[in-house]
């Protein structure tokens, strides 16, 4: 029985967690440490943290944040943003990332995928693909990069297949128009990519109700479902989302409670 994963996504710009709408940061929602602590305690299956600033000036600080977060994160942690060479991905792994997420630089220079896969293993490499509906493309979707600021000539499905061929262990797929829009995932896009590739697909972008998570899996064929914005405003949000998915009949991880004494668990250190 395959279990589906619920992934909480944190977008960080300039050291703060932000929300986005159609890939543009809207408002800051706070501190990454408190967010991870909540998610950690609330049954989330995985955490993804992505640095989305326009320039590289915040990278060193982001690395410090990742390092601090990883000390208190006992679910898989995926880290992305500003990866331009294999060494950047390795740097994230060295400070505690379990997976690296690459997007724009892979599309600009596809050899990078194999280079990162060689450095950290393909099981630890997530290739992230942002797409926009475009009827002129064979699959009906065009790949966009640079937080949707730049169009490419790539077809979304063809690029997904090429990325897997080159060494992607998982695909994270987001539709620009749905991002932050609360209308649910772009199901057509998810179905096209999940039907045409054989690595786990993580659906992202647009969750406004728990039903959207179910649709991503049932209709979109996603293995894992990710959301960001929605989790910031609901108490015990990831737990409720998991319960909703389980009640819909989908196999999810049960989050059993065990009392474990962690006398030296690092204390929250404000940045």
């Amino acid at each position: 029985m395959r279990k589906h994963r619920l992934i909480a996504t944190l977008l960080v710009a300039g050291g703060t967690v932000v929300q986005t709408r159609k890939f543009k940061p809207t408002n800051a929602v706070g501190n990454a440490f408190t967010a991870v602590d909540f998610f950690n305690g609330w049954a989330v299956d995985e955490i993804a943290i992505l640095e989305i600033s326009r320039d590289r000036s915040g990278v060193d600080r982001f690395i410090e944040i990742v390092e601090e977060l990883s000390r208190r994160c006992f679910v898989p942690l995926s880290v992305g943003g500003k990866i331009e060479q294999a060494e950047d991905a390795l740097r994230y792994v060295r400070v505690g990332a379990d997976k690296a997420v690459v997007n724009t630089a892979a599309s600009d220079r596809p050899e990078l995928i194999a280079e990162i896969a060689d450095a950290i293993g393909r099981q630890s490499l997530v290739v992230s693909i942002d797409a926009r509906r475009d009827e002129s493309m064979p699959s009906g979707y065009r790949v966009v990069v640079d937080c949707a600021r730049r169009d490419t000539d790539r077809d979304a499905l063809a690029w997904a297949q090429e990325a897997v061929e080159r060494g992607a262990g998982e695909l994270l797929v987001n539709a620009v128009e749905n991002d932050g829009d609360k209308r649910g995932y772009d199901i057509d896009l998810m179905r096209i990519v999940s039907g045409g590739t054989r690595v786990p697909l993580i659906a992202m972008g647009g969750v406004g109700r728990w039903e959207h998570l179910v649709d991503g899996i049932r209709l979109g064929g996603a293995d894992a479902v990710a959301a960001g914005n929605i989790f910031h405003y609901t108490e015990h949000s990831t737990k409720k989302a998991k319960e909703f998915l389980a009640a819909a009949g989908l196999p999810m991880r049960r989050s059993s409670f065990y009392k474990v004494a962690l006398p030296r668990r690092p204390k929250y250190r404000p940045f």
Binding site: F74, V75, S255, S256, Y258, V260
Partner: peptide, 8 residues
Amino acid sequence: KSQLAGLK
């Protein structure tokens, strides 16, 4: 990486 069950 298996949360409470793993820490246990």
